[in-house]
Design a protein around this nucleic acid. Structure first.
Lengths: 343, 343
DNA sequence: CTGAAAGCGCTTACAG
DNA sequence: CTGAAAGCGCTTACAG
């Protein structure tokens, strides 16, 4: 931990100036001229003395004052459905890492996927004067993004995308296709999808990718075999129950690992053995998937990279660049829950 | 979302003053006098006009400017091992909720339980001029807390405690005792503990509570039956392997649900059925425990409340009060993994 | 009851 | 190359 000399007040620009017998503005200029060469800011000698003392005193500029002057806070607001969702927490780790490298600090808030809460949290962040937002919980068809654009708030989307806006996501369509290919190859012909929340692009794209590929392979899948659900374990369980009431598929694709785990529980309750009687594939490859009693096949999405990418994109948006949507490639991890060949 | 009139600059105190034809300081005074009565700040009439216009224009004070003037940022730094740990993420939800009510914004950062990273993240937060810290990753025997005290940085501990410092934690000793009582009653006599990281008070207290109670019940437990481990699934698996090489206990207490899940995997690999051959109990009752194929018994710790309490304690520390350690009561949830009576 | 001034810690044209 | 001034948006004694 850096010690700034005494245990109390931080040292200011003026303190340094006084000690050096020069004007504060000179100190400021030096500290801002890029590293070694103090081009035009001060003489090489002065610059050296300033930097030396700043280091010695552990000077760190007051962000409040800087922000007030420059109207840039280097604060970034991040809004997610909830941080206790492993997927979002991991993306946030990527954000934190990238932002820290840029000297940007991040606020995260949970919206619980509630539209009112989304607006409330965004208001709090704007009241804090963040330079912009990373939005991880956008709902399809919401007018929120248009409003933000009208208010000239810089932002990028993460995790979920929306047409026409910059975003960092997993290539969810591709993810769904990978699962379709895999199950088809294993010989499955009767499949169902636990599709997630219909307001989330992740759910829609994964499902659409799967269904389209399945049909192009010559497979058959009725709309009634696609069941929308919550993303959590309980949601997955309920969806699986609903599916089992209609028919008994040989394979289940859940667009989220937690939903998949819930589905596994339901199958077990029906006396079915996952991997033998029914194959199950999840999505995200959260750290748990591989560690379950019956290890879960899952599409690995590059969560950390999605977070990092969101920060990079945001910087470009802030600089006024035109930024498009970035979709990072996923990969399928096959495990016991779906490894078995269908006779 | 509140709209502040135009899509660009926020409205300032001066804007309001100009529009009302009064001095900015009067506006400021009114806006600070507690709600209805503007005692001494301005006439009732003026106060009313000010508040009315402030509302109409969607005025929100600039926190940068306020912070600069008052030397209080209403920013709170939170440091956790990692947010992708469900336990810490949930505590953070409690923090966010309580802090928002107080108009305080929070930064969270991950230290990954690395001492160097802890200091680095704390430095970043102090450079941001947070009013203080909530520390969720304190290591026993670290000198960090003494240094922070010397620097007069207000802070409270959360999740893990340290003697002599204010903290909000689960009553981990009690949690361990509850497990000992439960396993003893079920007729177990040969037990092992997957104890977690020895630098974390959570691990130490849960283990100590269990062992002390076990012995006071007349039970026998050798030190070699207490295996320290990482908190994650892989750590639990390794610890269980180590235990099974020595002996075969009839029950396993893991101080963390993830470690418990890893242990369940190891037992399964050895052909043992959890709940029938070996009982397993975890800690924290994360949302997964109840949803596992074999539902996991676990000590429910009040994670949300721990987060909320940490914020309350912090406020009191900030006001200069003397604050002690608060330990919230846990409760044991018995499930299939340990429900069976030992013959 | 209200105004006027000073100042929090910084940056940034503008002179010289 | 360096100084001096103005100002970002607020608060807070101090007058009157």
């Amino acid at each position: 931990m850096r010690d700034n000399g005494d245990g109390g007040q931080a040292v200011t620009l003026k303190d340094l100036a006084v000690e050096l017998g020069i004007h504060p503005s000179t100190v400021s200029r030096v500290l801002h001229s890029s590293s070694e060469i103090a081009k035009g800011a001060a003489s090489a000698a002065t610059a050296e003395r300033v930097r030396e003392l700043a280091r010695k005193r552990g000077y760190s500029p007051d962000p409040q004052a800087m922000g007030l002057r420059t109207r840039r806070t280097r604060l970034l607001g991040v809004i997610v459905p909830r941080l206790s969702d492993l997927v979002l927490a991991t993306m946030y780790e990527g954000i934190e890492e990238s932002a820290a490298e840029l000297g940007v600090s991040t606020f995260v808030m949970n919206s619980l996927d509630d539209p009112g809460e989304q607006r409330r949290k965004i208001d709090i962040m704007l009241a804090r004067r963040v330079d912009g937002l990373i939005i991880g919980d956008v709902h399809l068809g919401s007018s929120l993004l248009q409003e933000l654009t009208a208010r000239k708030v810089p932002f990028v989307l993460m995790n979920r995308r929306a047409a026409g806006y910059p975003s960092a996501t997993c290539d969810d369509v591709l993810g769904g296709e990978l699962v379709a290919d895999h199950l088809w190859e294993k010989g499955h012909r009767k499949v169902s999808v636990i599709a997630g929340e219909p307001y989330a692009s992740t759910a829609i794209d994964r499902t659409a990718g799967f269904v389209a590929r399945w049909r192009s392979l010559g497979g058959d899948i009725a709309d009634s075999n696609v069941v929308w659900s919550r993303f959590d374990t309980a949601g997955g369980r309920e969806a699986a129950e609903k599916i089992l009431m209609n028919c008994q598929p040989t394979a289940l694709f859940a667009v989220n690992d937690f939903a998949a785990i819930g589905a596994m529980g339901a199958l077990r309750s029906h006396g079915l053995t996952v991997g033998r009687d029914v194959a199950v594939v999840g999505f995200n490859d959260t750290s748990l998937a591989a560690e379950l009693p019956i290890p879960l096949s899952s599409v690995r999405s590059p969560m950390l990279d999605i977070g990092r990418t969101a920060v990079q994109l945001f910087q470009r948006v802030l600089h006024g660049e035109r930024v498009e949507a970035v979709a990072l490639k996923p990969a399928l991890c096959v495990r016991e829950s779906s490894a078995q060949e269908r006779p």
